[in-house]
Design a binder for these strands. Structure first.
Lengths: 339, 339
DNA sequence: TTAGTTTGTGTTAGCGGTAACGAATTTAGA
DNA sequence: TCTAAATTCGTTACCGCTAACACAAACTAA
């Protein structure tokens, strides 16, 4: 069944004894083409399984209807869920999506960017790798007039770019407030890598919730870790070191890290283990399988973050917003109480 | 800094007062071009940030150096891990990857297929949706001479296609054998949706392990479920219903389902709960957080499945294997004993 | 000196579409 | 009946890039 001669407009035109342009217009439903002609062409196209060559169209139209996404990895559910939001909305508007993982490596991020540039994507959504300090590979896009929207992980110091972020301040504030309302006075805070920009926003949410509710702040109740389990255990050990200042609650920057913390506290038979109430960012489905689950989760609404990113990007592509008129969109978190 | 006139070969040629073809050949390092000319061209291209237009190249070369992947979703770690294998190897060989989710919906799968066809991918890797019965949208590719490799989820009845599969028979055999070796005589089997083709292979692995080790088979110890928690609980209740034939071990087709099962058994205070040993497919990282973790996991090596799929696909693209010479590649599972 | 090579560059056609423009035929209006 | 306006389709140039082929200049060999 393999057909050797590819089915192109030219091929159809010859079969139908018409010109290529008539065939093209008929397939694109131009009003200047006779209805009967259209019907003949469309039937022939269907029967011969004509598939327009996107490269040819891109070349002519000078646009690809492709959105590029660069993100650190696909193993983090935050990112995969955010893609869902992007894809959904992009598809509805006739755009396709190319996803490229940087694996948190700057070199790979540069490669991905160059690849997407060569593919002439109409826009780019990017969550930068944790080592990205120099932005030349991403600035290229704007230099060529291709809009870029940074989401989640973004160059925090740079105001001259479009951003869509989870309102991590509000999420952390809400989590802390929730614990305060349940009567906790000693709430520990376990922060994430200081390189990731929203780490500080979360801490501010924590601090502000304490302040607004007259709960005294204690530097002993704050520690930082990263994705390394050993570091998490060290941090937790420090947080729970002083018997005079023992936390009864914990806010952690990401759920898997929180699980490590909980596991450790249980493993050392912490005397008040059962009373300790924890909250982490993420709301992973695995919570239901834990024996000592967190009391609540901060749902970051990744789908909504993705959707807002693509919405903004499409407005930039369609020139509804000027590319120089830099936008910052915040997506609120939601506290999910388990039980 | 936004430059209005796009930097094309023509633009470079005018700047350098040379012909377009000389510029093209210089950039592609043709031996017939003078070294000094090459240097001049390449420097100018670099300084002006020339980025070749992939659409133009695709159109001319009649190949895109793009591999399409269609899979049900990105939330399942099996798929995201398999992508890692594909991407790694594809990139090394100068190919880019477009990922498209079908969300286990046939209609979306068809849309994805058509999109990738229009993009003229050089090859397709696909894990079909659970409703895919008709393959017209995928057969189009082979009709146009574009090779297709089915991986994991494939049309089991169809021998005329290329397949790369996890050796789920061997994985299940090994898991069952492991439990037998630990002295279990009553090993329950919790299977997955019967529509998914490898469900039967797993069951056969279970059966064969029993047979090879003279453990009597009991139909009461076999049940099926899907991704719905209620159905899993019903299935587990049935498996553990007969006091005369009470399982002491369990093999489950996927870990999250196994976790549901374990959770249920614990919730009903099953008398021998602590003695029951379980194994599921998946080897998810969350196991370390469980209080009653499975004794072992069947690691399906998704990265390796992905890598084998792309390797086969590239061989087909390069005509090292004839497209009609249908291949079937099996990737072994590995039993990971937790400790 | 002449002819054949080598070397380096330009000319040109074409990949598969789109659409402005032109041209022929039909229809409508006076 | 004659002209203007629709209607319908074809001609053509172009998008950015590749590469076969042509061609001129310089070099080599006889």
């Amino acid at each position: 069944m393999t057909n050797n001669t590819p089915v192109t407009l030219k091929f159809l035109a010859e079969k139908l004894k018409m010109s290529v342009s008539t065939v093209s217009k008929a397939l694109n439903n131009y009003p200047t083409i006779n209805e009967y002609t259209k019907k003949r062409v469309q039937e022939m196209a269907r029967d011969l399984h004509f598939t327009p060559n996107k490269s040819a169209i891109n070349l002519k139209e000078k646009k690809s209807r492709i959105i590029g996404i660069i993100l650190p990895n696909l193993l983090d559910h935050f990112f995969t869920r955010s893609i869902y939001g992007v894809e959904q909305f992009a598809t509805q508007n006739g755009y396709n999506v190319i996803i490229s993982q940087s694996h948190d490596d700057l070199e790979k991020e540069i490669q991905s960017a160059n690849m997407l540039l060569r593919s002439r994507v109409d826009g780019l959504i990017v969550a930068i790798s944790k080592n990205t300090q120099d932005f030349a590979h991403l600035d290229q896009f704007e230099n060529m007039g291709i809009p870029v929207v940074y989401y989640t992980r973004n160059p925090s110091f740079n105001l001259s770019c479009h951003k869509v972020l989870g309102n991590t301040f509000q999420g952390c504030y809400q989590a802390t407030k929730f614990l305060i309302d349940r009567g906790h006075k000693k709430i520990a805070y376990l922060g994430g890598p200081k390189m990731i920009n929203f780490t500080h926003d979360r801490f501010n949410g924590y601090i502000n919730a304490l302040k607004d509710n007259q709960v005294p702040f204690s530097a002993e109740l704050v520690a930082y870790t990263d994705f390394d389990k050993e570091n998490t255990i060290t941090a937790i050990r420090n947080l729970f070191a002083n018997p005079e200042n023992m936390p009864t609650a914990l806010v952690a920057f990401k759920e898997p890290i929180l699980f490590d913390a909980i596991k450790y506290l249980r493993s050392i038979n912490h005397p008040n283990f059962d009373e300790i109430e924890c909250i982490g960012f993420g709301n992973t489905s695995f919570i239901s399988y834990l024996d000592s689950p967190p009391i609540a989760s901060v749902e970051e609404n990744p789908e909504s973050v993705g959707e807002n990113a693509i919405k903004l990007l499409l407005q930039l592509i369609n020139k509804e917003i000027d590319i120089q008129n830099y936008q910052k969109v915040m997506v609120d978190c939601k506290l999910i109480v388990h039980g």
